[in-house]
């Protein structure tokens, strides 16, 4: 077990290691058996929200010792060393850490009578919330205990780990549900609105438009720039990133950019233009779930711009679009990063990869590399 990385000596984890922490409380959640990471994150956050005292109120907490071994995790009172909780390690679903908070998720099966036939078995999760300045270290030690126990299990059962590489990471990407921030965004009525713009006959609206990019869930044009002092800007109702659904009742959804441009140009002689828009931020976030670097990301990048996308790949499922420039990877700006470095970051990125993008043409317009063609 010497190979298993982590803060502890793997041999020590066989006997058990103790960490001091403050116990804040426990709560229960109902969960499916192997939820995707995004669901686990929401569960952990929910547990913390339920337990943490509101800002300004004092947080009740008890000094405890966390006993971590490859067999079990126990919560002992610091003074009497009495076991408050004792969970076999295989019932620990996952450990989450956020800042100085640790959330331990242990499973309990729901009684059979609560299960409807044909439905997924649901589990009751007992969520214990702790505070410690060493939260990350403790979480890493528990993660290490998971790995040591798992290696031991594979050895005992003569399972070749190389055959399990993909399974042990949790979900296979093929099973992953589609993540698309757009879908949630577009389905909210408050993001959709009708904008009425008054203008002089012969005057242009003063908007520049670009394609939303292949892979976008709503194939329609995006406002890339607003002409200073133009009717669109003066209305104060439009911003860069907004999707144009229709103009004066003519749908733009699914039409080529050039067709959309000529439809908007034809409005020149109108004095009132009604735009149906979905308000969107100029930057979109894609979340790619990649359990292992063995999985292809499923897109090609040239000079920071996504130039092709593999149909059905994890990138497409995560909301990556062709023609977009990568702005950030996992919170780190890459706008001034050389191509080779971006490739290196992407090649090594695993687990949940958060990528912020914007249409490359919008980026060029915003950075003054290209002059907008106002319509």
């Amino acid at each position: 077990f010497k190979e298993v990385p982590g803060p502890c000596d793997p041999e020590d984890l066989l006997d058990g290691v103790i960490f001091g922490a403050k116990y804040l409380g426990s709560t229960q959640l109902v969960s499916e058996r192997n939820p995707p990471t995004s669901v686990r994150m929401a569960q952990a956050q929910e547990a913390v929200d339920r337990i943490k005292a509101p800002e300004g109120e004092s947080q009740p907490m008890t000094e405890v010792d966390l006993f971590v071994s490859t067999q079990r995790i126990k919560v002992l009172t610091a003074d009497t060393q009495e076991a408050m909780m004792d969970h076999p390690l295989q019932t620990i679903s996952y450990i989450a850490d956020i800042g100085s908070i640790i959330v331990l998720m242990a499973r309990r099966k729901l009684p059979r009578r609560t299960e409807a036939s044909g439905e997924k078995r649901l589990y009751k999760m007992i969520c214990h919330v702790f505070h410690s300045a060493d939260a990350q270290l403790i979480a890493q030690a528990i993660g290490q205990a998971f790995s040591v126990a798992y290696q031991h299990f594979l050895q005992v059962n003569s399972i070749d780990p190389s055959q399990l590489r993909l399974r042990q990471q949790g979900h296979s990407p093929e099973d992953e549900e589609l993540y698309n921030g757009d879908l949630a965004h577009f389905s909210k009525q408050e993001n959709c609105k009708e904008v009425c713009i008054q203008k002089q006959k012969g005057e242009i609206l003063g908007i520049a438009i670009v394609e939303s990019g292949w892979g976008s869930i709503l194939p329609t044009v995006v406002i890339a720039n607003l002409m200073h002092g133009g009717p669109a800007e003066k209305s104060g109702e439009l911003s860069i990133g907004d999707r144009l659904m229709s103009v004066n009742g003519t749908s733009l959804v699914g039409l080529p950019l050039s067709t959309c441009q000529s439809i908007i140009r034809d409005l020149k002689h109108q004095t009132e233009v009604t735009l149906s828009i979905v308000h969107c931020p100029p930057v979109t976030t894609a979340i790619i779930r990649r359990p292992d670097s063995k999985y292809q990301l499923g897109f090609c990048v040239e000079n920071g711009i996504i130039c092709s996308l593999m149909r059905g790949g994890i990138a497409e499922k995560g909301g990556i679009r062709v023609g977009h420039r990568i702005i950030e990877i996992n919170g780190q700006s890459v706008v001034a990063t050389p191509h080779e470095k971006i490739i290196q970051i992407l090649t090594q990125a695993v687990s949940e990869v958060h990528i912020k993008t914007m249409p490359a043409s919008t980026y060029r317009l915003l950075t003054g590399q290209e002059q907008p063609i106002f319509l």
Partner: peptide
């Protein structure tokens, strides 16, 4: 600060009787 999740790989192998009742 970032929320980090470490999933127990043994979760997949847990037998129903092992879940705490």
């Amino acid at each position: 600060s970032a929320l980090t999740i470490t999933v127990n790989p043994m979760e997949k192998y847990e037998q129903p009787h092992q879940a705490e009742e």
